[in-house]
Amino acid sequence: MNEIFALVEHRQGIIRDITYELLSCGRKLAEKGNTKLTAVILGHNTDNFVQILKGQAHRLLVVDNEVYEDFNSEVYQTALTEIIKRQNPVLTLISHSAFGVDLCPALAAQLGMPFTTDCLDVELAEQKLKVTRQIYDGKLNAKVLLRENAGYMITLRSGCFPAGESSLDGVVEKIDTPVSAQPDYRKFIEYIEAAVGEVDITKSDVLVSVGRGVKEKAYLSIIEDFAETIGGVVGCSRPVVDAGWLPKDRQIGSSGKTVKPKLYIALGISGAFQHIIGMKGADTIIAVNKDPNAPIFSEADYGIVDDLFKVVPVLKTKILEMKQAKG
């Protein structure tokens, strides 16, 4: 079997965590398929990356040029088309991130290669590729077979392939860049940091987080009141921000903040993986949701299947009683 490629994702000079998950998945597949894993690094001032990743792959293919410093899918696509055509990997692994979703479909389509996105599990045997994906708001899984081909490309969901230890001694191979400038039709300009809000939810030990289940802005006062009682602050899922009920800096998840509080109470949050990513590091997670099949219950330590508006007032009273008994 030909080699497996894993594309290194970096931003602002730092390798992103998902990269280690891709590499770990790639190593396992390579071992099973009796082949090798190549980490593909497109970047600038890559020595540091090479240092860090040397132990993680059999080979490191490095293309170093200014043009790769910041991600631009057009630039990456042109370069990778060249490289993949020349090297014919059996499978290219890319992260299912803002980087990967911008790149993979176009790159694979250009190469005429079967691809699929957002994979939770991968089986590669006898040149056949089967992946598991999640559909319908995470309520079902689908096993999907890709059209048989010499090469495949997929994006992997983060958090599904734990990064593992590895002590390979990767061979470093530098190649000339196929691209030297950003095209006029798509130019990276700058990063804009998210505005800093009045409350830093990442600093709080206790987070009360609300989702679309809170139904309307007016009810947030109930939640805020509850959070105050238990000495926490209010965070939320994305739809709450989209609706303008809370500022963006309260959003938890892949396109919001990552939090690791001691206690995380999820109220009316279904548990989409984009949300889970941001809060699964919490020590204790308590979820309240009316739907017993809501995926959040696969992440939480404790679950209450009920209407949050019934739970919150009673819980508040109980906690007040407890505090009084103490004080």
């Binding site: 803002a98 990276f188 892949s254 919001g256």
Partner: peptide, 15 residues
């Protein structure tokens, strides 16, 4: 503007 992880925004010029 593209939205990246962690709420970071990527600003692009396109044609």
């Amino acid at each position: 503007h593209r939205e990246l992880e962690g709420g970071l925004i990527e600003h692009l010029d396109m044609t």
